[in-house]
């Protein structure tokens, strides 16, 4: 564990130009780290643990893991 309490030094990042706000990523996020609004989604870095589950369900490759 890193000092911030995260299990990984990765973080999910969304590409707003591709994302269609289907919410698939948010429904599977075990940390409830994805906040969905009408026109965009937001990854909450304090909650995201970099597990990558969200990247497995995106229909358009709009979400990926990046280094923190």
């Amino acid at each position: 564990m890193s000092p911030s309490g995260k299990t990984s030094n990765k973080l999910a990042k969304v590409n707003g130009e591709i994302c269609g706000i289907c919410q698939a990523c948010a429904t599977v996020c075990p940390k409830n780290a994805i906040d969905v609004f009408e026109h965009y989604i937001v990854i909450l870095p304090d909650k995201c643990n970099g597990c990558g589950t969200c990247t497995k369900v995106c229909p358009v490759e709009a979400i990926e893991l990046v280094e923190r």
Partner: peptide
């Protein structure tokens, strides 16, 4: 309900 497992949902396009 908490979060879904990936297999619980269909990813659609």
């Amino acid at each position: 309900r908490r979060s879904f497992k990936p297999a619980d949902i269909d990813s659609c396009f």
